Amino acid sequence: MNGSLRSTDNVVDMKLKRGPAGLGFNIVGGVDQQYVVNDSGIYVSKIKEDGAAGLDGRLQEGDKILAINGVQLEDLTHKAAVDLFRMAGEDVELRILKKSPPHMNGTSDSQPEHHSPVFSLGLLLALAGAAAIFSFIYTRHTRKHF
């Protein structure tokens, strides 16, 4: 049976029971294949819907796996991490750092939006068009008739 062990902030401990499709997720990362700049951690890259993780529903793509069966995944090569998962047995305990949710509605630490140059050009053209129409209407309305 799958179930939580304990949770602290964004760190979640969970148990998964290996099924016919394995644990049902792929990993990326390691000291030899950094997935995140300046971070050699192991991350979930894909969840298989019919696997143990997909059926459980708590593990998400982008989550960082901190430990498996109590073994820390720091400073491991990708292959060493894969080997740990393969030898983990049927009942697997994972310690996960959940990916941070995106910030909503302008929290104090949110980053400004970055728009593509095409968006900026389109906005500029729309404003220029509106100014031209306004100017045309204004000059036509204020023109004196003799």
Rank of each mutant, 00 (worst) to 15 (best):
N2P: 09
G3M: 09
S4Y: 14
S4T: 14
L5F: 13
R6F: 12
S7Q: 15
S7M: 11
T8E: 15
N10I: 02
V12I: 14
D13N: 14
D13Q: 14
L16M: 08
K17Q: 05
L23Q: 02
D32G: 04
Q33E: 14
Q34A: 06
Y35N: 03
Y35I: 01
V36K: 10
V36F: 02
S40Y: 14
G41Q: 08
D50E: 13
A53Q: 15
L55S: 00
L55F: 00
D56T: 01
D56R: 08
G57R: 02
E61H: 06
G62S: 07
D63C: 04
I65P: 13
L66Q: 07
L66K: 09
G70S: 02
D75P: 04
L76Q: 01
L76Y: 05
L84C: 05
R86Y: 06
R86A: 12
M87T: 14
M87R: 13
G89D: 01
E93G: 00
R95C: 07
H103M: 11
N105K: 05
G106K: 04
G106P: 01
T107C: 03
P112M: 06
H115S: 13
H115Q: 13
S116Y: 01
S116P: 00
P117F: 08
V118A: 12
V118Q: 13
F119R: 13
L121E: 11
L121S: 06
L121W: 09
G122E: 06
L125I: 07
L127A: 15
L127N: 13
A128H: 14
A131H: 05
A131I: 07
S135C: 04
S135R: 01
Y138F: 06
T139W: 05
R140A: 09
R143Q: 12
R143H: 10
K144L: 11
